[in-house]
Amino acid sequence: MKKIIAVALVLVTVLALAGCSSKSSDPNVITHAQYVEKALDEEVVIETYVQAHQSWWDNKVTVYAQSKDGAYFIYEMAATEEEAKKLTPGTKIKVTGYKSEWAGEVEIVDATFEILKGSYKAKATDVTKLLGTDELIKHQNEFVSFKGMTVEDYGDGNAFAYKNPEEKSDDLYFKVSKDGKTYEFCVEFYLTGKDTDVYKAVEGLKIGDKVDLEGFLYWYEGANPHITSVKVVK
């Protein structure tokens, strides 16, 4: 009996500590649900985990972040180049900034951050069935996947388009369809430049290819995912 009680006490203690460690000691820190409820232009303090970031420049870095309860897009967060290098995927950060919206993308702007202990990498959520529905926006900024999409003509018989076709130093755009509806996706140059696998994969797409895609569910006047992985499946 004593052994059972001892084990139980240990378990309770461990669980209690685990619970404490996942909850911030800062009373200003809010959950994702509370973040969603916040009005635009209100100050927000969140704790989350870096999933990826765009290239650093001019003491700013744009971060794709996600916690177990939701995702955030942190636009041009203040960071020195050295600080930005520490923002590897999984890194836990506490972010203070303002909730904002630009062309439908809900984001945190004018943000500062500090690195905390902890790590979490989100697995892609399959949102294929949510395309074209009002449910999709609930997954805004999350790391998501789209399965079995068909590459469509982007125009003039091409499977994709360069924003800057002459220099190839900018975003790539392509269209994919599912169940008769077509959607426009993007390879964001500052997230995945022309030397990355995804950039090259999109350059190699052909109209009619069946593809599985992964990326961050960015918004620009509607869903406009920043794709990070393209796999031709057929």
Binding site: Q54, S55, W56, W57, S169, F189, Y190, G193
Partner: peptide, 8 residues
């Protein structure tokens, strides 16, 4: 943006 930084 890496390109821009290097260019700068």
């Amino acid at each position: 943006m890496r390109v821009m930084k290097r260019l700068a």
